[in-house]
């Protein structure tokens, strides 16, 4: 679940605006988190399905843990692959919304302008 592949090495078109890129809030990729958690669940359930109590009386004769575990592993692989193939494009800039006279003005970036 390393987050290092979330920052694209070079974003076409916005490579010049690196200070703004650093400011972006989505600096890590949620898809890797989802993939990792579902993957861990998939491993646990698959192992339970093979070695654990299959509880056929409850499930009506299906090895539910095994099937659910395998599906979770597939979902995990899909999320990981998606995150790898299409890394997050960090927004070039976020407009400060405080240019409004009707609103009490917070001093957003005292040194900025």
């Amino acid at each position: 679940m390393s987050a290092d592949n979330t920052t694209p090495p070079s974003v076409p078109g916005s490579a010049s605006s690196s200070p703004a890129t650093k400011h972006a809030a989505g600096a890590f990729d949620i898809r890797n988190f989802i993939g990792a958690l579902l993957g861990l669940y998939g491993i646990i359930l698959t192992l339970m399905g093979i070695f654990g109590d299959k509880a056929y009386d409850k499930t009506g004769g299906i090895n539910a843990n095994l099937w659910a575990g395998l599906v979770l592993l597939v979902m995990s692989a899909i999320f990981m692959t998606w995150a790898r193939l299409k890394p997050i494009l960090v927004p070039a800039n976020v407009e400060p919304p405080d240019d409004d006279a009707t609103r009490p003005a917070p001093k957003r970036r005292p040194s900025g302008h």
């Binding site: 669940y41 359930l45 339970m48 654990g52 299959k54 509880a55 499930t59 009506g60 539910a64 843990n65």
Partner: peptide, 11 residues
């Protein structure tokens, strides 16, 4: 309680 085996129950 009635239909999930342990494992799926935790999930």
């Amino acid at each position: 309680r009635d239909i999930l085996p342990n494992g799926l129950l935790g999930l």
